[in-house]
Write a protein that binds this DNA or RNA. Structure first.
Lengths: 105, 105
DNA sequence: ATCATAGTTCGACATGTGTCGAACTATCTA
DNA sequence: TAGATAGTTCGACACATGTCGAACTATGAT
């Protein structure tokens, strides 16, 4: 058997599941695109998209976007924080690194 | 909008979906483990597991393993070839490289 | 030829997923 | 305080997924 324990496998599977839906993958890509490593990953969400931006770009109703954001967040791939009326969100670099390590092992 | 076209996104999503089920992820890991790059990836499947091996290790009935193998194969993550009564399978290094590039972009 | 072995395909079925609209909550503004 | 704006939660529903066992197919052995 492989040297991963059940929890690790479940956690990885959850990350992949979060990226397995085209719309969620698009959200993830939007967040990566709007915040290249140099800007985003050092400023803990100071740059980056609002949920409303994603709603417009993807042409999906807000409730569905919210639903997908939740899945991405629970998988640990993105972070969110309220700023006034809006909620700002960004990709968690640690999660991406975990995936890179997985494939590079 | 991100600079990926619809087909690319769908294809990536399918790869992630293939890895989004714990048992399929386990199969993928088994195949990677039994065939480290040096041995496997240069001998096009001369090393590597049989489907029956995976059935035993994962403790899942053959029909379910077969079902999962099909998903991994259709996503382009693994290759299979019949050798006598058995079917040998291995991870496609090109697919893994595509995923590595995706996260490293 | 018959049989055994290794996988696949099929049908069934419980459970999970993706989407929407309606109702709700939190925050700012007038 | 009342209204507007930005998201979330809930309920519904069509559709997809994961799993099994039974029947089938392909190959090798007796």
């Amino acid at each position: 058997m492989s040297n991963y324990d059940t929890d690790t496998i479940d956690q990885l599977a959850e990350m992949f599941k979060a990226l397995s839906n085209p719309n969620r993958l698009r959200i993830f890509l939007e967040l990566i695109d709007c915040c290249p490593p140099g800007t985003l990953w050092q400023q803990d969400g100071e740059c980056c998209a609002f949920v409303g931006d994603l709603t417009r770009v993807l042409e999906i109703v807000p409730s569905t976007v919210s639903h997908h954001m939740k899945a991405l967040r629970q998988a640990g791939l993105i972070k969110m924080r309220r700023r006034g009326k809006q909620i700002v969100c960004w990709v968690d670099p640690a999660a991406v690194q975990a995936l890179v390590r997985f494939f590079n092992r």
